[in-house]
Computed example of a mutant assay.
Amino acid sequence: MSERLQPGDTAPAFTLPDADGKDVSLADHKGRKVIVYFYPAALTPGCTKQACDFTDNLDVLAAAGYDVIGVSPDKPEKLAKFREKENLKVTLVGDPSKETLEAYGAFGEKKLYGKTVTGVIRSTVVVDETGKVEHAFYNVKATGHVTKIIRDLGV
Rank of each mutant, 00 (worst) to 15 (best):
A11H: 13
P12E: 07
A13T: 13
F14C: 01
F14T: 03
L16Q: 02
D18H: 01
G21Y: 06
K22P: 05
D23H: 00
D23S: 00
S25K: 08
L26Y: 02
D28E: 14
D28L: 03
K30L: 02
R32Q: 10
R32T: 07
K33W: 08
V36G: 07
V36W: 00
V36A: 14
Y37Q: 07
P40V: 08
P40G: 00
T44K: 15
T44G: 11
G46M: 12
T48M: 10
T48W: 07
K49T: 13
Q50Y: 07
A51G: 09
C52R: 09
C52Y: 02
D53F: 14
D53H: 14
N57E: 13
D59M: 01
D59V: 05
V60T: 15
V60D: 12
L61G: 01
A64C: 07
A64S: 08
G65H: 05
G65E: 02
Y66P: 02
V68I: 02
I69R: 04
I69L: 06
G70T: 04
V71A: 00
S72W: 00
P73E: 03
D74F: 02
D74I: 06
K75V: 09
P76Y: 02
E77I: 02
K78V: 11
L79I: 07
L79P: 04
L79S: 04
A80F: 00
K81W: 04
F82W: 13
E84H: 12
K85A: 12
E86K: 11
N87W: 08
L88A: 08
L92G: 04
D95C: 06
D95S: 07
S97T: 15
K98Y: 11
T100W: 08
E102K: 15
E102R: 15
A103L: 05
A103W: 01
A103P: 04
Y104V: 02
Y104W: 08
A106R: 04
F107Y: 15
G108T: 04
E109F: 02
K110F: 05
K110L: 15
L112R: 10
L112P: 05
L112W: 10
G114D: 15
K115P: 12
T118I: 13
G119Q: 09
V120L: 12
V120T: 15
R122V: 14
S123L: 07
S123P: 05
T124S: 14
V126Q: 05
V127C: 03
V127M: 12
D128L: 12
G131Y: 09
G131S: 09
K132V: 14
V133H: 08
H135Y: 08
H135F: 07
Y138G: 09
N139W: 00
V140L: 09
K141M: 11
A142Q: 13
H145M: 05
V146K: 09
T147F: 10
T147L: 13
T147I: 12
T147M: 11
K148G: 07
I150F: 06
L153Q: 09
